[in-house]
Amino acid sequence: MTDSPSGDRSRPARPRVRRSGPWLLALLLLAPAVVVPLLVPIYDREGPTLWGFPFYFWFQFAFIIVAALLTTAAYRVTLLAERREREASASGKGGHR
């Protein structure tokens, strides 16, 4: 038993290369999708309206699309990162187990 087995990436139980760059990028992409909807004062207003929708409503609808795009981008980034890590650990250790 270790104190923080999962957080400790310098000494993993089995060799899997973890590069922090892509994961940081994924976090940066996801952060606005969580934070912006919680900043209610920035969109809690009636004007300007769009197709009859008060700003409050159309902003939140538009942000669903923005958040989906950000999450898709983060998915692409992590997919690529995981594939590279897998290849790196497979070639480095000759396919353990």
Binding site: L27, L30, A31, A33, V34, P37, L38, F57, Q60, F61, F63, I64, A67, A68, L70, T71, A74, Y75
Partner: peptide, 16 residues
């Protein structure tokens, strides 16, 4: 209407 931002915020959390 919080149901909308709620279901926006939830997916990045799931992702992580």
């Amino acid at each position: 209407f919080f149901a909308v931002p709620y279901t926006v915020v939830v997916y990045p959390l799931i992702f992580l």
